[in-house]
């Protein structure tokens, strides 16, 4: 067996030295020309750690201009890159992960006690010595929010053509043959008629792809959870709005299909270990609408049951769905005017939102909870393939 000589790591202090004139090259290699695949086999968020180790060295030699310059160039390069890749989910997710990790590093190694509670003694030794970068932390946090918003916008645009078809039109239960994964984009207009051909499987596949990429990039699970929650909100809003405007989907069988689809999405969340209740609550109005389509709508007892069941839907929404409700065959009756009046009477005095349609543009505020890393900077290995051999390990 060949003996391998381990290079002594004990002298490495987890800093990276570079000449000021190499800053542009560093930014080019690490940000501008970086592709997520180039670091997929390394520790997640390697670019963020490398940048931080460079900042540490500039701090160590007490060169404030070098720290300023590196941080400004970094923020500048990330902004430009995002502008260039404004429709690219993978790139946006990758830089959200790295920006947030760089922000965590600036906190973890700030020397401020509140951020040091989980640090190892070695990590505490690695804290910044000369500079307080609190103001740059604020800039990075603002940048993170911008990147998050871009990520949500991209994901929503990609899902938009799928939602109505997958949730309301294609059905594995109703005997409608799923049409598979065809490329059409027109589900937003409510009177377009026929399905655009996306199945629930396609929508779930898309969600899986988003979630897998975020995990692979090392995005904090708390943040990817917020992305999924926002996307579920969007699925709820678009589906419910279509239901509130289209007679052809207000039927018992769509209600049954919808309920089944929502169960599948719930299963998906469970399979991905995502916070179920928190995310499912965004889709609750759609669950209630599906139940409303399925329950009996005849007696005063039915009316009372509907009123207690549909506590998130507004009176206006409940009444609208009942008015649009279309019997599937001659055995089923239309909802009578007096039944709808009963519902209106029962719901009188309920304080609620007066709007019929759900705001599809609403976004939940994003939070970036502090997530320190257990990783030790002195163990960081930089692959030769990154062409960063001008960085000196210190």
């Amino acid at each position: 067996r060949q003996a391998t000589v381990q290079r002594k790591e004990k002298d490495f202090e987890g800093m990276l030295e570079y000449h000021k004139e190499d800053e542009a090259l560093l930014i080019r290699m690490l940000i501008t020309e970086m592709k997520p695949q180039m670091v997929s086999a390394t520790v997640p968020c390697l670019p963020a750690y490398i940048l931080f180790m460079c900042i540490r060295h500039a701090d160590y030699i007490n060169d404030d201009q070098k720290v300023h310059s590196l941080l400004t160039s970094t923020i500048n390069a990330i902004k430009k890159l995002l502008k260039k890749n404004s429709e690219d989910f993978e790139m946006t997710s990758f830089w959200l992960a790295n920006t947030s990790r760089l922000l965590h590093c600036l906190k973890q190694y700030s020397g401020e006690e509140t951020f040091m509670t989980q640090n190892s003694p070695k990590q505490n030794e690695h804290c910044l010595k000369n500079f307080d970068l609190a103001e740059y932390r604020q800039v990075l946090s603002d940048l993170g929010i911008q990147i998050y918003q871009q990520l949500i916008r991209i994901a929503e645009n990609m899902m938009q053509p799928m939602i109505v078809s997958a949730m309301l039109e294609s059905g594995s239960l109703t005997g409608v043959k799923p049409l598979g994964y065809r490329n059409r984009s027109s589900s937003v207009d409510c009177d377009s008629g026929g399905p655009s051909g996306y199945t629930l499987d396609a929508l779930i596949k898309q969600l899986s792809q988003f979630h897998t990429q975020m995990s692979e990039h090392g995005l904090d699970p708390e943040i990817s959870q917020q992305v999924v929650r926002q996307l579920f909100y969007s699925i709820n809003a678009v589906s419910l709005n279509n239901l509130l405007l289209r007679k052809d989907v207000c039927s018992w069988s769509t209600g049954m299909q919808l309920r089944y689809n929502i169960t599948q999405m719930e299963e998906w969340l469970r399979g991905r270990n995502l916070h179920l209740k928190h995310i499912m609550s965004t889709i609750e109005p759609l669950i209630q609408a599906a139940q409303l389509l399925q329950v009996k709508k005849k007696t005063i007892q039915d009316a009372e049951a509907i009123c207690s069941m549909c506590n998130i839907l507004s009176t206006q929404q409940i009444v609208k769905i009942l008015n649009l409700y279309t019997p599937l065959n001659e055995f089923e009756e239309r909802v009578t005017v007096s039944f709808i009046r009963d519902i209106q009477n029962l719901l009188q005095g309920r304080t609620e939102n007066a709007q019929l349609l759900v705001d599809t543009k609403h976004t939940f505020p994003v939070l970036f909870p502090y997530t320190p890393s257990a990783l030790s900077l002195e163990t960081m290995h930089i692959p030769a393939s990154l062409n960063l051999d001008f960085l000196g390990r210190v």
Binding site: D64, T72, L128, K129
Partner: peptide
């Protein structure tokens, strides 16, 4: 053991101020 020196706050422009400085304009674009 020496007490660490207090760190010097590095002033940074806000992201909005950086935008105003046209820092993020792409030189490549026309």
């Amino acid at each position: 053991r020496l007490l660490p020196r207090p760190r010097v706050l590095l002033k940074a422009p806000t992201l909005a101020e950086m935008e105003e400085m046209n820092l993020f304009e792409d030189e490549d674009s026309p």
